[in-house]
Design a protein around this nucleic acid. Sequence first.
DNA 1: TGTAATCTCTCTAGTCACTAGAGGTTCAAG
DNA 2: CTTGAACCTCTAGTGACTAGAGAGATTACA
Lengths: 150, 150
Amino acid sequence: MFLSIGDLAARTGVKVPTIRYYESRGLLAAPVRSAGNQRRYGRAELERLGFIRHARDLGFSLEAIGALIELQDHPDRACASATRIAQGQLGAVREKIRRLRALESELARIVEGCTGDGAARDCYVLASLADHDLCSRDHPADAKSSTQLS
Amino acid sequence: MFLSIGDLAARTGVKVPTIRYYESRGLLAAPVRSAGNQRRYGRAELERLGFIRHARDLGFSLEAIGALIELQDHPDRACASATRIAQGQLGAVREKIRRLRALESELARIVEGCTGDGAARDCYVLASLADHDLCSRDHPADAKSSTQLS
DNA sequence: TGTAATCTCTCTAGTCACTAGAGGTTCAAG
DNA sequence: CTTGAACCTCTAGTGACTAGAGAGATTACA
């Protein structure tokens, strides 16, 4: 079981440059190299990368994943901090949903108010954005960090 | 009505470096300057920055905001593209909510499965992340772009 | 064994929407 | 006229990658 970086990428669904990036960030240990300096991976790395990918899919930051891996490497430590990290993530997800729902209703209101067939001067979308009073009050004012849609 | 950049920041809630950043991105026109080369703003800039801020609060990208401003500057054009941008944003918000809800239930399941008082070797959080089969199948596998929590 | 196609290597730079800091200049109050 | 706050430009950093250049390694097949 000697996998090239491309094999590992194919098996885990993580792109090749991303694997190298994870190594540079310390989430994956530097693997053994072939005679020609190419990375060679085994089962352990396959599993760890699967772990990372699964955690990323659930939205954990690389920093949080690093902490979880640290814990995984020390099975006799208390698992409380893993639980805390996951709870933090859950809380962040819930908060984000809450804010996005407020955005959704505001945007829906704006979109529905506009027929889309007039001139820009009469556009309800533009008017709503220009005039905060047209807005059902209090949509998140300082929530940029959680409303980015990348 | 001659506002310094600090006054403008105080009135709109947009930070000073962010205002300069918007200017550099072309969202705000370069304003007149004082004798000593400091920016001086008037009512038009105040309103435009309010527009930008409102749109940012609703999650629009700077690129989308640029397109909306372009339209605002040409009131005789059709408003259809403004509506399209807003609809796109609404769709993106809804999609994001959908994905976050899937994450939420998965995370809640993982967190609830763990008492948090054992050792890391028996931690359900860590086990769930290590083994995708422990997972109620199909949570978003390729949804990173919309699940980041910044 | 030769060769061609595909991988892989390192390094740099770009993405988005800011934010922080250095080092220097201008303004407004007292 | 002095002081201190606000302002100027410029560079670099954030997170989590992604893209590309230019060079070297590996593999499949003849």
